[in-house]
Amino acid sequence: MPSAAERTRTLVQSTCSAVLLVPGLGAARPEPLTPEVRTVGPDGDVYLVHPADSPVVRAATHAEADDLPAVLELTDVAPVSVPNRIRGRAWLSGWLTCVPGVAEPGRMMVRLELGDLSVDDLWGIETVSPEDFAGAAPDPLVEYEAELLQHLHAGHGDQMRSLWGLLDEHRAGAGAAVPLALDRFGFRVRFTREGSGSPADRSFDARFEFPEPVRDVAGLRREMHRLFDAAGE
């Protein structure tokens, strides 16, 4: 399974939504600010780009001791419609400083030096050290995952439903089977049984592990064909 550090790194470098929470910008609650760009440097620090006249840039420029406490909050939402659609959240706490002369005119890059990290996702709740985060790599499928899940959901409904046949007898049944998440280690599906009651109450997840981690989309296609072939036997 992917480590908590890898999962957090994947969220940071994905297209999931991100909000920078900076206390003390003239509001009773931390002011949410959405970075236009976010990247991770070789040392594990997170670099964010904001308009040069944004409150966070002004605050970081004038912060005492040249740093400003902040939290980058990431929210990962499934790219297909499923009950309980939020797949995970991560929080990266640290200190902001400006990095002049890097971003394009009218923009300013700020560096978030990390202190505390945590992730709450489909695997559970875990903390991550800045050192582990710096040493982790994002999942190689991260830039393709949303499109692949949408393709499976829209064009392979019968094959998805056939995966009910691979479940153990305690979870066997019939109903919807929606692709929920993909990574190099496996494929997670959200099953919803037929019957009365809310879809959330009738839903559960099952994960199908690949024999070996895949490295690219070609390897993923081979594993998905193998999985669907097994379900069709």
Rank of each mutant, 00 (worst) to 15 (best):
G157V: 10
A134P: 02
P199Y: 07
T39N: 12
R221Y: 15
S162Q: 08
A218L: 13
V128R: 02
V12G: 01
P23A: 03
L166P: 01
P2H: 10
T127C: 06
E233W: 14
G155Y: 00
A206S: 15
A5T: 07
A176S: 09
P138L: 00
P2G: 10
D183G: 09
S162M: 00
G157A: 11
A146V: 11
V128Q: 00
Y144A: 15
R58N: 10
A5N: 07
V217I: 14
P23Y: 05
F204Y: 08
L112A: 02
T192Q: 12
V99Q: 06
P79G: 09
L92F: 03
V217G: 12
G197F: 07
F204H: 07
P100R: 03
D205Y: 01
T15S: 14
G175T: 01
P83K: 01
P32M: 11
V49K: 02
L152Y: 06
G232W: 12
D229F: 10
E131N: 15
F208Q: 03
Q159I: 09
V142E: 12
E145Q: 13
D158I: 10
P69C: 05
V128G: 00
Y47L: 15
A176H: 06
Q13R: 12
G44Y: 06
L122T: 10
P55L: 05
V57Q: 03
L163I: 06
P83C: 06
L11C: 08
I86V: 12
H151K: 13
A59T: 07
L148K: 08
S118L: 09
E73F: 12
T34W: 07
A174F: 00
L141H: 06
P179F: 00
D201E: 14
D120F: 08
L163Q: 02
T34F: 08
C16Q: 13
S203V: 05
R111A: 02
A59P: 00
G173R: 01
L114R: 01
T97V: 11
R188K: 07
A174N: 07
V119N: 03
T127W: 08
E212A: 14
G106S: 03
E209W: 15
S129M: 07
H50Q: 12
W123C: 10
A78I: 03
M108T: 15
D139Y: 01
Y47W: 15
P100C: 04
F133T: 01
G101Y: 06
R171K: 10
G155N: 13
A52F: 10
E233L: 13
D66W: 13
V37F: 13
D121I: 01
R111Y: 04
F208D: 06
T39R: 15
D229L: 13
W164T: 05
G124A: 08
T75H: 11
F210K: 06
T8D: 03
L166C: 02
L68G: 01
M160S: 10
R226I: 08
L74G: 08
M1Y: 15
P140C: 01
L68A: 01
S196D: 15
R87K: 08
G106K: 02
